[in-house]
């Protein structure tokens, strides 16, 4: 089946990893890119077979083009629809999946053709388990992923008709205050209750400065101690840096759901049974007060 998988993108989040996953159905996926020319070009270099580009009118959010995206998808009738968890992307995925009558699951990390079925592997319960869902009919999935380098090459870009957009208008847009750049940072140092007194945050900040990283914390540090305004976690901020250094963090599901998109997690904790070590790439069972000064020294060498 040609073009068996379609990917809906409103930004480049997980774009290459979604296209790579979709290719498991046997053909290079089609990407519907709803955004500026740059996005369409990134999609063309993502390994896609073709790119269908919708360029939003100035002042109109991507979500307004749900009807146009749904019409394109239903005309092609793909077996698989993928999108990232970006707000606009998953909203458009919903519009297309509803029109296609597709079953929909979330947390997708891999796709396989399984006989005449499509199997979607999903990370569930904050990454504690992987559940495989099989669909005999069309299936849509909100993906987890990583930001992989583009394989290069260039698929053709075809402009699509914007159709009749929904009545949505952007009246104003300005940078959000606060957050300390946590959601945009390439590196983040996070700390939990392993930091004993507020003054010790200076040590965390010194390490973060040496790593050119932002500083974040767990929910109890923000809500109970009030040391910071915002925290990383399911009900707080979700972050996706290349590196997350977790200092004195136990790793409750609340917290690990906020770091599930991090590429490399390094954790230091005195408790060898701490759940954070299940999510971490590197683990050190030690007193962070002894290790952090040594990391600072190692970074200078």
């Amino acid at each position: 089946m040609s073009g068996a998988a379609w990917v809906i993108a409103t930004d480049t989040k997980y774009l290459v990893s979604m296209v790579t996953a979709g290719a498991a159905l046997g053909a290079a996926p089609t990407v519907v890119a709803v955004g500026p020319r740059d996005l369409a070009e990134a999609a063309a270099e993502s390994g896609a077979g073709q790119v269908v580009w919708l360029e939003p009118t100035a002042g109109t959010p991507a979500e307004a083009y749900g009807p146009a995206v749904a019409a394109l998808v239903t005309a092609a009738g793909p077996r698989l629809l993928l999108a990232s968890s970006a707000a606009a992307a998953r909203t458009l995925l919903g519009a297309a999946a509803a029109a296609l009558g597709a079953a929909t699951v979330s947390g997708a990390i891999a796709v396989e053709a399984s006989g005449d079925k499509v199997a979607v592997k999903c990370s569930r319960l904050g990454g504690a388990v992987v559940e495989t869902f099989e669909a005999a009919g069309p299936v849509a999935a909100v993906c987890q992923g990583y930001d992989a380098p583009a394989p290069g090459g260039a698929a053709p870009i075809e402009s699509a008709d914007l159709g009749q957009p929904a009545a949505l208008t952007i009246a104003d847009e300005h940078p959000a205050p606060g957050g300390g750049g946590l959601t945009e940072a390439e590196r983040v140092v996070g700390f939990g209750r392993g930091i004993k007194v507020r003054a010790d945050m200076a040590m965390v900040e010194e390490l973060a400065a040496a790593l050119n990283a932002a500083v974040g914390c767990t929910m109890p540090v923000a809500d109970d101690y009030k040391w910071m305004d915002q925290y990383i976690g399911r009900s707080g901020l979700s972050i996706a840096p290349k590196l997350y250094l977790a200092l004195g963090i136990q790793g409750s599901p609340q917290h690990t759901q906020g770091i599930r998109d991090v590429k490399v997690v390094a954790a230091i904790n005195t408790d060898p049974e701490a759940p954070i070590f299940r999510r971490a790439t590197y683990g050190i069972v030690a007193d962070l007060y002894e290790v952090v000064p040594e990391i600072l020294a190692a970074l200078k060498s």
Binding site: D11, P61, A86, A166, A167, L168, T169, I170, A171, D172, E173, H174, P175, A176, G179, G181, T183, E184
Partner: peptide, 9 residues
């Protein structure tokens, strides 16, 4: 994505 957006719907 780090911006505050006001949308009329």
């Amino acid at each position: 994505v780090g911006n505050i957006q006001t949308v009329s719907a």
